[in-house]
């Protein structure tokens, strides 16, 4: 069998580039919010981003052959010609793309949160994170404490989740910005 001289080299370059951007940004946020060491935060950011990217690839590689011809034609058009086929699809297309963006954002968030928790547990930092000094107690917290409930626990989980979602949002926004910038420059030069 002969192969066409077509290689996904641009995919690899862009993926590495975007991964580096995402890792840099997320490591910064993890370091600041979870008070981790410099090296540790870079390591964690690398692992959670790699996990998210791999999950994305597996989803794509599994779903693409299962998708109907219309969707497949759209995928091929996007990947090979950098545009979507637009006849008759315009109204649905926006909604579908929005849904995909939403699913991928929360999907990556879930993977990153679970991955980070796993790595923190390996390093035995998860328990330390829970003992972190809290912010000022609110009235509700004091009541809850008086009732004997564990406010502390939910507070840290909230902080942790908040950090991960913030890191994810920041890296998504940065990559989106880079892509928009690229389109702008392309439109400019064309």
């Amino acid at each position: 069998m002969e192969y066409e001289p077509i290689l996904p080299l641009k995919t690899i370059v862009f993926q590495v580039l975007f991964l580096l951007v995402a890792i840099a940004i997320e490591a910064g946020i993890l370091r600041q919010r979870l008070r981790l060491g410099f090296q540790t935060s870079v390591q964690y950011a690398t692992v959670i981003n790699l996990a998210a990217v791999v999950a994305g690839w597996i989803t794509f590689l599994v779903l693409e052959p299962l998708s109907p011809m219309e969707v497949k034609a759209q995928i091929m058009s996007y990947l090979l010609f950098n545009r979507l086929l637009v006849n008759g699809w315009t109204t649905e297309l926006g909604a579908i793309l929005f849904a995909i963006a939403l699913v991928s954002f929360f999907g990556t968030f879930l993977i990153k949160a679970k991955g980070l928790e796993y790595f923190l547990r390996i390093d035995k930092s998860w328990a330390l994170l829970k003992k972190q000094p809290k912010k000022k107690l609110t009235r509700g917290d004091i009541y809850a404490k008086a009732r004997g409930g564990g406010v502390e626990d939910s507070q840290t989980t909230f902080d942790f989740t908040d950090t991960v979602i913030q890191a994810n949002a920041a890296s998504f926004s940065a990559i989106l910005l880079l892509m928009l910038l690229r389109f702008a420059i392309q439109g400019w030069s064309a």
């Binding site: 066409e4 001289p5 077509i6 290689l7 996904p8 080299l9 641009k10 995919t11 862009f14 091929m76 990947l79 090979l80 010609f81 950098n82 545009r83």
Partner: peptide
Amino acid sequence: LLVRSLDESDFVVDFV
């Protein structure tokens, strides 16, 4: 798909 080069793609490099 290959009647023309794939030079518009952001994902693949067409060496022809």
